[in-house]
C-alpha cells in the first residue's frame, strides 16, 4: 500500500473519497464530529448547511488544507497521513476551486494554468500551454489567456480557476462555495461550466447554496449542521420530503423567502 503510483489503485469499487470517523477541532471548537462519508467514482455530491456548520472544513480536510485530528481519510484508496510526499501526491489528484478564486495575480491567465503542470508534473512548456488553451477553450475564456486575473470579472476569474485545476487532470474536484463571491449575473456562467463538468463524469464535491444546481446534477445532497451530517439523500426526496426538522427549517429559509 505504501508505494502506490500517483494514480489510485485500480478497481472501480474503491471509493474515490472515504472518510471514517473524522473529527476535527479548531482550538476547543469541535468543527467536525464523527464524519462518515463515501464518495464513489463519478458521483456528484452537494453539501449544504448554515454557515459555520463545518462544510468547508470537511472538504478542505480531503486535500489536507485542514488537518483532522481523529479518524481516517483516503482518496482513491490512498490513506491521507502526515507524510508530506503523500499529501502532495493526493493533492495532485484532487482539484480545488475556492470561493475567492485565489488566482495568482502576478501571472497571466495562461501562466496560472501552466505553472503547476510545468513545475509539479514536469511537463514541457509547449505541451502545458497547449493543454491549458484547450481547457480555457472549454470554459470559454481562451481569448483572455494573456490577461492578468485583475483584468477579469469575478465570473471569468472563477472559470479560469476551474480550468487551472483541470489542467492537473484531477480525479476529484472540490468546490468550496464557488459562486458565493460572485455578482448575481455571473453565477450562471460558472454554474454552466460546473454542470458541463458533471455531465462528463467528474467526481465532484460541491459546497454550495445553489439548490438549482443541486437538483440538476447532484447524485446525493448532504445537509450539515454543527459539524455533523444531519441528512443525506438523493436530491428529489431531499428537497421534496426532508426528514429532519433542521433540514426542513434550513430549506424553508433558503427556498422559502
Amino acid at each position: 500500500m505504501s508505494d502506490q503510483a500517483t494514480q489510485s489503485p485500480a478497481g472501480a469499487e474503491t471509493p474515490m473519497v472515504e472518510m471514517r470517523g473524522v473529527n476535527k477541532w479548531f482550538g476547543d471548537f469541535h468543527v467536525l464530529r464523527d464524519i462518515d462519508l463515501e464518495v464513489r467514482r463519478g458521483e456528484r455530491i452537494v453539501i449544504c448547511g448554515p454557515s459555520g456548520s463545518g462544510k468547508s472544513t470537511l472538504i478542505r480536510c480531503i486535500n489536507h488544507l485542514e488537518e483532522h485530528q481523529q479518524g481516517e481519510i483516503a482518496v482513491g484508496g490512498v490513506p491521507l497521513t502526515q507524510d508530506v510526499k503523500r499529501i502532495e501526491q493526493i493533492r495532485r489528484n484532487v482539484g480545488m476551486v475556492f470561493q475567492h478564486f485565489n488566482l495568482f495575480p502576478h501571472l497571466t491567465v495562461l501562466e496560472n494554468c501552466c505553472l503547476s503542470p510545468m513545475w509539479v508534473q514536469k511537463r514541457p512548456r509547449r505541451e502545458a500551454e497547449a493543454q491549458a488553451m484547450q481547457y480555457l477553450e472549454r470554459v470559454q475564456i481562451a481569448e483572455q489567456a494573456l490577461k492578468y486575473p485583475g483584468q477579469l470579472s469575478g465570473g471569468q476569474q472563477q472559470r479560469v480557476a476551474i480550468a487551472r485545476s483541470l489542467c492537473m487532470h484531477p480525479e476529484v474536484m472540490l468546490f468550496d462555495e464557488p459562486t458565493s463571491a460572485l455578482d448575481p449575473e455571473m453565477i450562471k456562467e460558472v454554474l454552466d461550466v460546473m454542470v458541463e463538468l458533471a455531465r462528463e463524469g467528474m467526481t465532484m464535491l460541491c459546497v454550495t447554496h445553489e439548490m438549482g444546481f443541486a437538483k440538476t446534477v447532484a447524485d446525493r445532497v448532504i445537509f450539515m449542521d454543527q459539524g455533523q451530517i444531519i441528512e443525506e439523500n438523493a436530491p428529489e426526496p431531499f428537497f421534496n420530503d426532508p426528514q429532519s426538522e433542521r433540514t426542513q427549517l434550513f430549506l424553508s429559509q433558503i427556498l422559502g423567502h
Partner: peptide, 21 residues
C-alpha cells in the same frame, strides 16, 4: 492572502515551489 498559498498547495506544489513561485 493565505488563499494564495492554499491554492498553490491544492495544485500539488511543495513548500519551496509555493514560496518561490
Amino acid at each position: 492572502p493565505r488563499g494564495q498559498e492554499e491554492a498553490a498547495a491544492a495544485l500539488g506544489m511543495g513548500y519551496w515551489q509555493r514560496m518561490g513561485l
